[in-house]
Design a protein around this nucleic acid. Structure first.
Length: 487
RNA sequence: GGCUCCAUCGUCUAACGGUUAGGACAGGGGCUUCUCAAGCCUCUAAUCGGAGUUCGAUUCUCCGUGGAGUCACCA
């Protein structure tokens, strides 16, 4: 098989879209699996829509999800950008002369023609076509111009565009995901390939670059299938080999329509802000429309690279199941080491990161779904929240018993050494041995102990809480609870 | 509306033409248990409809139906 070269060709019009991430992932899977290259190319041919900082944001997101490209723009440590790769430049606005040359070539060959129609005329024309239920497409008014006439008007400085002259016939192609697709050219518009401002449109720029950059597989969203004939026609006009097309199923909102800002979060950045881990997001998005099969749900990125198969990609759109993302995020959270939890949670936490906070984060990581929940989860550890002393009493006991148990615990815990306080399981066995030795019931002891330590009816185990708080704070809280029960 | 694509539990999905149609999320019940979380067990829940091919269709073909995408000097 020839060298696999995939490319992601985003337009810098805002934050990175979650669908863009999925396409990027599949590009990456396919390239890595075949020892190929993954290229990023910036499609900024619409000057009006380009947003400053969008490329930087895109590259930052790539860094965040830990997938790297082989060619294209890269972010330097100082925030400036540089390019890597032998097929640059990788930003289309730096390639204008290339497109101009190619457009001229098509005009010279009679495959394309200048058009002087105004936006107003075009609109009128479309209205008329819609009125008689015709396909809306350019009526080829300017095709009848002679070369001399056109030359004269261009030289006179008249604004014009270049349109491709779609030949008669039909375009057939084998989509790697969808199979055989046929389009009759009667449905294909003489679309514009060069705009008045001298910039190319997507069709021309993408075809030229995909060829020049030796792209073997074009992965893109399903919204592009209907424009595929235009791309293929261009490849053929230039006499180039046509790459393999694969149209990915759309990512849908809860309304089953193409995911938009109205119906859910579309920006990858938003998912990070909401406290999702990059690994979870990659796992989730990377298995949407593609499943390695088997009864597993959690996959590392390398496992996805290994098992990826373009031909096993679904063709139906996928609604984002946010509950499942939460569940998946939790799976990753629970697997984090103490060091990693601290690292990930720190940006979401408003209190100072102390040893106590680190321990609390480690314990709470299996009790939250998203990083944003840590801040609240931390509060009872950092500072005892006021509570009704009545909650100290276990449902099967009374206040007097609870108070007595707390006093015994106070005495017991005073005897614990540093080594015991250094490990949750040591604390647990020490307390439980005492309970057994004294012939007590777990509930009578553990419930008041835990509530006194956490100040909460629902919380982590008393042993975990002891470990987080340390001896001194633990005893303080027990003393407080005992006093509260006595008054 | 034209064109194109798509169709398995509510959602994400699995199933060489032969399975009691499997798994996961969510939901219900239970176990465990000092509470919550986790874990384990369990229940509810799907092949859009109709023809055809076949000994046998979730799977192949056709026709419906439904949904989506697209019809810009945006990508």
């Amino acid at each position: 098989m020839a060298v696999v070269r995939t490319r992601l060709a985003p337009s810098p019009t805002g934050k990175m879209h979650i669908g863009t991430l999925r396409t990027a992932l599949f590009d990456y899977f396919l390239a890595k699996q075949n020892g190929g290259k993954f290229i990023i190319r910036i499609e900024d041919t619409d000057q009006g829509r380009s947003v400053p900082g969008a490329v930087e944001n895109l590259l930052e997101m790539f860094e965040a999800v830990n997938i790297s490209h082989d060619e294209g723009p890269f972010l330097n440590d100082d925030g400036t950008m540089a390019e890597k790769g032998d097929f640059g430049p990788y930003v289309q606005s730096d390639r204008l002369d290339i497109y101009k040359t190619h457009a001229d070539e098509l005009v010279a060959k009679g495959f394309a023609y200048p058009c002087f129609c105004s936006a107003d005329r075009l609109e009128e024309m479309r209205k008329a076509q819609v009125a008689v239920k015709q396909t809306t497409k350019y009526d080829r008014k300017c095709l009848s111009l002679t070369a001399a006439e056109a030359r004269e008007r261009i030289d006179a400085g008249e604004p014009h565009v270049i349109r491709i002259k779609i030949p008669e016939g039909k375009t057939e192609f084998d989509d790697a995901i969808r199979g055989h697709v046929v389009f009759d050219h009667r449905e294909v518009d003489d679309c514009i390939i060069m705009k008045t401002d001298g910039f190319p449109t997507y069709y021309l720029a993408a075809a030229v670059d995909d060829h020049l950059m030796q792209i073997s597989h074009i992965l893109r969203g399903e919204e592009w299938v209907s424009s595929t004939p235009k791309s293929i026609i261009l490849f053929k006009m230039f006499g180039w080999d046509v790459p393999i097309f694969a149209h990915l199923p759309l990512l849908l909102g809860p309304d089953k329509k193409k995911l938009s800002k109205r119906t859910g979060d579309t920006a990858v950045e938003e998912y990070f802000k909401h406290g999702y881990l990059a690994e979870a997001l990659v796992n989730f998005v990377g298995t949407l429309g593609f499943n390695p099969s088997g009864d597993r749900e959690i996959f590392t990125i390398d496992e996805l690279v290994e098992s990826f198969d373009l031909h096993k990609v679904n063709s139906g759109g996928a609604i984002l199941n946010m509950e499942k993302l939460d569940w998946m995020n939790k799976q990753y959270l629970m697997a984090l080491s103490m060091e990693d939890v601290t690292l990930r949670a720190t940006p979401f936490v408003s209190v100072e990161i102390t040893d106590l906070v680190e321990r609390a984060l480690f314990i709470e990581r299996s009790r939250v779904s998203r990083l944003t929940e840590f801040n609240d989860a931390l509060k009872p550890y950092v500072e005892l929240q006021t509570y009704d002393p009545a909650i100290l009493v276990w449902k099967k006991a009374d206040a007097a018993d609870s108070c007595a148990q707390l006093e015994r615990m106070f005495a017991l815990i005073q005897t614990f050494d540093d080594a015991t306080f250094n490990a949750v399981d040591l604390l647990e066995s020490a307390v439980k041995e005492y309970i057994t030795r004294e012939g007590l019931q777990n509930g009578n002891v553990l419930w008041p102990l835990r509530v006194a330590l956490s100040g909460q009816e629902k919380s982590a185990t008393p042993f975990e809480t002891l470990w987080v708080l340390g001896k001194e704070t633990s005893l303080d809280r027990l003393r407080y609870a005992i006093t509260a029960l006595k008054t």
